[in-house]
């Protein structure tokens, strides 16, 4: 089930997929991974993003991380960095992370209730 041979096969699958999708606009989804973020569940949020992107084949979405954002009580914080602008989300549970991917990143509609305004 989990052999080097499996990994090689998956590698070839991934290669074929990325070839087909080359050139799509890139959206960056940034997770705050400071101490407060991690304590509030940022690892699970990141894990949910990675899983959803893998399962939905969202190849133009890139997940990255950043450090402490100084908004500890609103962690986990996720920033969606799309061609049309940046949006900062507060208290992003895994469930919210999946919704943000579907509704905002894929659907183009921000989820206003969770957006951090300053």
């Amino acid at each position: 089930m989990k052999t080097v041979e499996d990994l090689r096969k998956l590698r070839e699958e991934v290669r074929q997929m990325t070839k087909l999708r080359e050139g799509e606009a890139e959206v960056r989804v940034v997770v705050g991974m400071g101490t407060c973020g991690i304590a509030a569940g940022a690892r699970e949020t990141l894990g949910a993003l990675v899983q959803e992107i893998a399962e939905q084949g969202l190849l133009s979405v890139v997940v990255t991380q950043t450090g402490c954002l100084g908004l500890c009580e609103r962690e986990p914080i996720v920033e969606v960095n799309a061609p049309d602008g940046r949006t900062l989300y507060a208290r992003v549970t895994p469930e919210r992370a999946r919704r943000i991917l579907r509704q905002h990143v894929q659907g183009g509609v921000a989820i206003e209730d969770w957006v951090i305004r300053n």
Binding site: K2, V4, L7, R11, E13, V14, R15, V50, A54, V63
Partner: peptide
């Protein structure tokens, strides 16, 4: 082994399951 595909979410998921096992 991954030859440049390691960052891909599908590969990361595989690695996670491999380590968990």
């Amino acid at each position: 082994i991954c030859e440049g595909t390691m960052q891909h979410p599908k590969i990361i998921l595989w690695l996670k399951e491999y380590i968990a096992l």
